Amino acid sequence: MVNRRAVVTGASTGIGEATVRALRAQGWDVVGVARREQRLTALAEETGASAIACDLTDQAAVDALIEELRRSGPVHALVQVAGGARGTDSVEEGSVADWQWMYDANVLATQRLVAGILPLLRKAASSDGHADTVFVTSTAAQTPYPGGAGYNAAKAAEGMLVKVLRQELNGEPIRVVEIAPGMVHTEEFTLNRLGGDSVAAEAVYAGVDEPLLAEDVADVIAYALSAPRRVNLDLVTMRPVAQSAQHLLARGPLHVRTDVD
């Protein structure tokens, strides 16, 4: 993996941060991208990654990011983790501002990033055989639930973007991978969604026997990038064992039933 370089967005926290660590452990050169420069810098110093602060909802900032990537070296992989949720309102009471932000952060940010970075991926694929894109969506893209419409819609749109991209790149040596996690207990996702209410955020995970961790998702991302180039993981849906479906979550210790033969 020496000399292969990956760009990881959302790198200041959660799955993005864990992915930077996982890829660095495999020997990748990694560029971490996120809005918060101070957290990025600390991660870069600890892991040996590079860092570029960028707000992916700002076209001028993305243009500057792409130019810096072009100037600084090849790009063999894009891992698009950045995004997020705001609010749990019903459709009737939904905040247009929150829904607009979710669409900007999850869909339009992904589109502008792909549009900018594809020429760099093609250049790397031409010289080194193949390139990769990995997109972290959500099981919210697959299954609706009350209070989730804004996030459901945004992640479903992002997931459809990924599926169309895979078809549009057919015939090119560029893999397009989608990872759709269920419940992942991270530092900020639910906290941000619930407006900073830490008590409400922790209640979401209360009693759940081992939710997924950011490191679990990062491990799958790292495998997708290291798999033989003939292998494309079109869609990986991953959940904790305690969550057998989007709406079916066990709270309390997992245990073997004793009322069956």
Rank of each mutant, 00 (worst) to 15 (best):
A109Y: 13
T110H: 15
T110Y: 09
Q111I: 13
Q111A: 14
R112I: 10
R112E: 03
R112D: 08
R112S: 12
R112M: 11
V114F: 08
A115Y: 04
I117L: 15
I117P: 04
L118C: 10
L118Y: 01
L118G: 13
P119K: 08
P119G: 10
P119E: 03
L120S: 10
L120K: 01
L121E: 02
L121W: 01
L121Y: 00
R122F: 07
K123C: 14
K123Q: 14
A124E: 00
S126H: 10
S126D: 05
S127K: 11
D128A: 15
D128L: 00
G129T: 10
G129Y: 02
G129F: 11
G129S: 08
H130K: 01
A131E: 02
A131F: 04
A131K: 04
T133G: 11
T133K: 02
V134E: 05
F135W: 14
T137F: 04
S138F: 05
S138P: 14
T139C: 03
T139I: 14
A140Q: 08
A140E: 03
A140S: 15
A141G: 14
A141M: 04
Q142P: 05
Q142E: 10
Q142V: 12
T143H: 09
P144D: 01
P144Y: 00
P144V: 04
P144L: 01
P144R: 00
Y145E: 09
Y145T: 15
Y145G: 13
G147S: 07
G147I: 12
G148M: 00
A149I: 12
A149R: 09
A149T: 14
G150Q: 07
N152C: 09
N152L: 02
N152F: 07
A153T: 15
A153D: 09
A154Y: 12
A154L: 06
A154T: 11
A154K: 07
K155I: 10
K155E: 09
A156Y: 04
A156D: 10
A156F: 02
A157P: 11
A157H: 09
E158P: 13
G159M: 05
M160V: 06
M160A: 11
V162T: 05
V162S: 09
V162C: 07
V162M: 03
K163N: 12
K163T: 14
K163W: 01
K163H: 13
K163C: 05
V164E: 14
L165Q: 12
R166Q: 13
R166S: 13
R166T: 04
Q167T: 08
E168S: 10
E168C: 13
E168I: 03
L169N: 07
L169V: 04
N170M: 12
N170P: 10
G171C: 00
E172G: 06
E172A: 12
P173I: 07
P173Q: 09
P173D: 07
P173S: 09
P173T: 08
I174R: 04
I174Q: 08
R175A: 10
R175L: 10
V176K: 03
V176Q: 08
V176T: 04
V177S: 09
V177T: 15
E178I: 01
E178S: 13
E178W: 05
E178A: 04
E178D: 13
I179T: 08
I179C: 07
A180N: 13
A180W: 11
A180V: 10
P181Y: 00
P181L: 00
P181Q: 00
G182L: 01
M183W: 02
